[in-house]
Each structure stands twice: as C-alpha cells, then as structure tokens.
C-alpha cells in the first residue's frame, strides 16, 4: 500500500500547500457532490459501520469472556499473537529497509534481481502457503528431503514442534510480504536527494555513517508508519497461520485471528469467536491512535 513520503529536509524547498479559497458549493454542484459521495457512504454504512456495530454487539456478552479466559488455548494464542507481531513485523521491516539499499544500486543485475525478488508478492498467497506447508513437512517435504540428500540425517520437525511451527509461520509471512515493504522503502530512499549523499561522501563519511546519519533519520517517520500499519495488518492475518501450521500442533500456534474463526465456526459459538477477536482491542486501539497521529503530522502520507 502505498506509502509515499515527504521527506523533511532542509535541502528541499518546503512544499507550499495550495490553500486556494473557494466559495462554498452552491445549487446543483451541491447535489452533484452529494451524488458523488453516496456510493462510498453507502458502502461504509452497510459494510463497515453495520458489521462493526453488529460485531461489537455479538462480542458484548460478559459470559463469552469468562468462557474465553477459562480456555487454556486463549492465553497461548495471546502470547503467539504478540510474538508473531513483534518478530514477524520487525524482522520483515528491518530486512526490507536494508534490502532497499541493495536495490538502490544501479546496474542490470540489481534490476533483474528486483524483478525476481518481487515474485512472492505477485504470486497469490494461498498457493504459495500450501507449497510452503508441504515444503516443510518433516517426512517428505522438500527441505528435509534436501537435508537427507546432503547429510543423511532427518531434518527438524518444522511443523510438529510448537516453537518451530510458529517460526515457520513467521517465515512464511516474511517471505510473502518482504518484497512489498522493500519496494515502499525503495521509493522512500529515492526521495532522498542524491546531493546529500554526495556531500557526505566528500566529507569522508562511510557507508554506515551515511545510513545512520542520512537514510535512517530521513526515513524514520516512514518506518514508524510502516511498522504501525504492518502490525495492524499482521494482527488480522489469517491465511499464514491457517495454511502453514493450521494452528497446530495441538492448537499451540493459534493467533487471535485464527482462534476467533475456530471458536466461531468450528466450535459453533460466534459470540465466543467475536469475543476472541475483540480481546485484541486493547492492543489495536493504541496502534490506531498512534497511526492517526503520525499521519496527521503530514510527514508521511498515505
């Protein structure tokens, strides 16, 4: 998603926002404006407001929360969710930031590499995840077959051990979404004027100096927004867990998104499912507040 950045730096003349005063809408224009926004307002009411309200209502039964807390799977899902968010999001974005530097280099090789590197994002998620799931099968998956072929030993039980299975889910998430965020940071880096680097080089700054003194400070705002957005999206990520570990082994890798669906549609208790999902609100609300504040500052625009 498109994140564009306005880099806050002295070398660039501040963009003067056009605040052309216009007269308020009159007559037919007003009707046209109304007609133009109606589709979106309708979509918003019918498919955002109503479901959100209905979901809140479904999840407002205290008994559901009591039942949820009594379920030993719930605390482990909360912990998994936190680990998933902290590790997957940060690992992914840190790698993306570094790799975007690689793709800044000129030359046919880096351009070709970028074309290939983008593939995981362009290939639909479900087929890729099914493939990763099979690839990691401990008895006949590609990885352990390769380990056996090379070293004649049984590889690790990727999906049959709780920690490894969660690790595998994180791997799949990073694999799928790393290219996207790399492209975003690449765009951010391209906005940094070359002269900054050139003058730094003249002053004798090394690559690391340039990264820490120019790139990172200038991309900091963008990085923060990306972290917040990516965290929110990862919180709602159902497919990675569903198709890589399926929540297994022994329900040990469920996150709130998958546990909610399980409680609602496998155990037949939609109120419990909604309560599961809503229990993420204490985490979600601060994220949204931070994100909104960050976006209002206008340094980074969506």
């Amino acid at each position: 998603m498109a994140i564009a950045t306005t880099v806050d730096n002295p070398a660039v003349a501040p963009v003067v926002s056009r605040s052309v005063r216009r007269s308020p809408l009159a007559g037919t224009d007003r009707l046209w404006a109304l007609a133009f926004v109606t589709p979106y307002v309708a979509v918003f009411c019918a498919f955002v407001l109503y479901p959100v309200g209905y979901g809140m209502w479904l999840g407002s039964d205290v008994a559901s929360y009591r039942q949820l807390l009594a379920d030993p799977v719930f605390p482990s899902a909360v912990v998994n969710t936190l680990i998933y968010l902290l590790v997957a999001v940060n690992l992914k974005l840190a790698l993306a930031l570094l790799l975007s530097g690689l793709f800044m280099r000129r030359g046919w090789w880096c351009r070709l590499l970028l074309l290939i590197f983008i593939l995981p994002w362009a290939v639909p998620g479900i087929p890729s995840f099914i493939s990763i799931h099979w690839m990691l099968n401990s008895q006949w998956g590609l990885i352990n077959n390769a380990i056996w072929a090379l070293f004649q030993v049984d590889g690790p039980p990727w999906l049959d051990n709780a920690d490894l299975a969660l690790g595998s889910v994180i791997y799949a998430h990073v694999w799928k979404w790393l290219p996207f965020w790399t492209v975003i940071f690449l765009a951010g880096r391209m906005a940094i004027p070359r002269e900054l680097y050139e003058s730094a080089e003249v002053d004798g700054a090394g690559a690391l100096d340039r990264f820490f003194h120019i790139t990172f400070p200038l991309l900091g705002g963008l990085y923060l927004v990306c972290t917040l957005l990516s965290t929110i999206w990862a919180l709602g990520d159902f497919n990675s867990v569903r198709f890589i570990s399926g929540g297994g082994p022994a329900l040990s890798t469920h996150v709130l998104a998958t546990l909610g669906i399980r409680n609602a549609f496998e155990l037949g208790n939609p109120a419990l499912g909604m309560a599961t999902v809503l229990s993420a609100l204490p985490l979600l609300i601060p994220l949204v507040v931070l994100l909104t504040r960050q976006l209002r500052r206008g340094e980074v625009q969506l």
């Binding site: 009411c45 498919f47 407001l49 109503y50 309200g53 209905y54």
Partner: peptide, 15 residues
C-alpha cells in the same frame, strides 16, 4: 442491545 444496534446501523439496514 439490539435497539442500540438498530440506531447505529440504521443506514446499513436501509441498504
């Protein structure tokens, strides 16, 4: 709760 919701989702229900 149903009533509260009805108010909230009135437009949605219209749709």
């Amino acid at each position: 709760r149903r009533h509260a919701l009805a108010g909230l989702g009135a437009t949605g229900l219209g749709a």
